[in-house]
Design a protein around this nucleic acid. Structure first.
Length: 103
DNA sequence: AATTTGACGACCG
DNA sequence: TCGGTCGCCAAAT
């Protein structure tokens, strides 16, 4: 059960207007893999801002593209067409710093 | 015990 | 950029 909590905690830490990939969560948690994270999100993601977790190429969650897109756009997340521009939107957990803020 | 199945990802043509 | 292919990891069949 602990694994689930770690994943959800990580997702909750993502601020509005930012996003990160499943692989980023997996890396932060340290075990399991992106697919494992996906399984957890599928089962327990409703409780957290799931739309801020996107695929590595920036496309939103499979199956919930519509809602994810509208929420992301509403938050002002940097988008590139129908996908998140992760180069700008990615949230860097380590140190709580972001690529955008770093000079 | 073997196979299929995901809210995935890297690589290659 | 866009697909196809293969690797990955755990859970459900």
């Amino acid at each position: 059960m602990d694994y689930v909590e770690h994943v959800l905690r990580a997702v909750e830490a993502i601020p509005p207007g930012r996003a990160c990939a499943y692989s980023d969560i997996a890396e932060l948690v340290g075990w399991g893999g992106p697919r494992r994270v996906g399984q957890v999100m599928s089962a327990h993601g409703a409780a957290v801002p799931w739309w801020r977790v996107v695929r590595a190429d920036g496309r939103p969650v499979r199956g919930l593209e519509e809602e994810a897109l509208s929420r992301l756009r509403a938050e002002g997340a940097p988008m590139r067409g129908d996908r998140v521009d992760l180069s700008r939107a990615r949230f860097d957990f380590a140190g709580h710093r972001t690529p955008h803020d770093t000079p």
